[in-house]
Design a protein around this nucleic acid. Structure first.
Length: 301
RNA sequence: GGUGCCAUAGCUCAGUCGGUAGAGCAACGGACUGAAAAUCCGUGUGUCCCUGGUUCAAUUCCAGGUGGCACCA
């Protein structure tokens, strides 16, 4: 029997956590979280980390395992998860990965090009230039260093311009020369199970979950992290709106409504991304038996 | 019961000196290889409360009705 990675994916709030426990139990295996925010140890309430009891039932990996203070990205995730999978597959034939971070899923399944790690100082100085000189100046510089990418990139997206230029300046080579987009082969089979449900129900679940987060003490959790609000890892729905409240830009009610709205928006964005992935087989969360039966049958093939 | 004000997008409202209408929020869609819960781009979804009148033409003016709000009883 080939080693198999089952991936349970879907928009935020759809009910992945509950179902992942059932599936992990059925296959007697462990769970790798694929969530770019639950991975940080300093956050818990706003990232909807599963409760202690759930985490004890089934071993979880990559939940609250990294610090917000350390730079992290999809490439590191790919590398670390592949390593962990190798270990897990020594004892298990099936491992379950669950989460909704689209780019992390793709990095793991298809690989991501090798790029040098960006120097912190260079990033800072380019971000300052973006502030003072505006995007136009960096755009022009990118056109000089990498006309190929300049013609492809969304010129209005500052992050894309910035990153491409970083790579050009660090390596002395055009960014596009690294973008080979090679589909990497994985030494295991991948089955993607998508969860979705009626839009209105999904939104109600998201809204209710935000209310529950406030009851649990989200405001206090965010206040403790307020000193670090400029970290990328804290540019996160549920926290940045509360930082605006602490800054006096929003009332607490406005912040709460914004968290709900931004969570719904995020769910939509996830669905947009997943929609173009034809490998995903979709289910509603109530079809527990069908999902497990489908996975079982796929394992045999 | 009387008087006044209001009724336009899912919500809050703007507007049309009469030529079938637009903002914010919400909603919907798209892009996407190292910040991705990030970042960027696009879309107006409408019996302009109802019925009649005036008019070439009414969401707009007039009358009545209905609903809401305020004040007076």
């Amino acid at each position: 029997m080939p080693k198999t990675l089952l991936i349970l994916l879907g928009p935020t709030g759809v009910g992945k956590t509950d179902l992942s426990i059932e599936i992990a139990k059925y296959f007697n295996t462990e769970i790798i979280s694929c969530d770019s925010r639950q991975i940080y140890e300093e956050m818990r309430i706003g990232t909807a980390v599963p409760d202690q009891q759930t985490l004890q039932t089934i071993p979880h990996h990559f939940i609250r395992s990294h610090s917000i203070h350390n730079y992290y990205n999809a490439s590191k995730f790919e590398e670390e998860v592949l390593e962990r999978l190798e270990l897990l597959f020594q004892a298990k034939d099936v491992v379950l990965m669950t989460g909704g971070s689209m780019m992390y899923i793709d990095a793991l399944c298809k690989g991501i090009d090798d790029l040098p790690e960006v120097d912190d100082e260079l990033r800072k100085s380019l971000m300052e230039r973006m502030e003072t000189e505006g995007i136009e100046s960096l755009r022009n510089e990118l056109r000089y260093h990498d006309p190929v990418y300049y013609n492809e990139v969304d010129l209005r997206n500052p992050k894309r311009i910035l990153h491409a230029l970083e790579i050009c300046l660090m390596t002395g080579k055009p960014y596009s020369s690294f973008r080979i987009n090679e589909q990497k082969k994985r030494p295991f089979k991948i089955i993607k199970l998508g969860l979705n449900r009626d839009r209105e129900v999904l939104y109600n679940r998201i809204n209710q979950r935000v209310d529950a987060m406030f009851d649990e003490g989200l405001e206090k959790e965010a206040l403790n992290l307020y000193p670090f609000r400029n970290l990328n890892s804290l540019n996160t729905v549920g926290y940045r709106e509360l930082f605006d409240y602490f800054d006096g830009k929003l009332t607490i009610e406005e912040a709460k409504e914004k968290i709900k709205a931004n969570s719904r928006k995020y769910a939509r964005k996830q669905l947009t991304w997943f929609r173009r992935d034809s490998e995903i087989v979709w289910f509603t969360p109530d079809k527990k038996k069908e999902i497990i039966a489908f996975a079982d049958q796929q394992l045999m093939e």
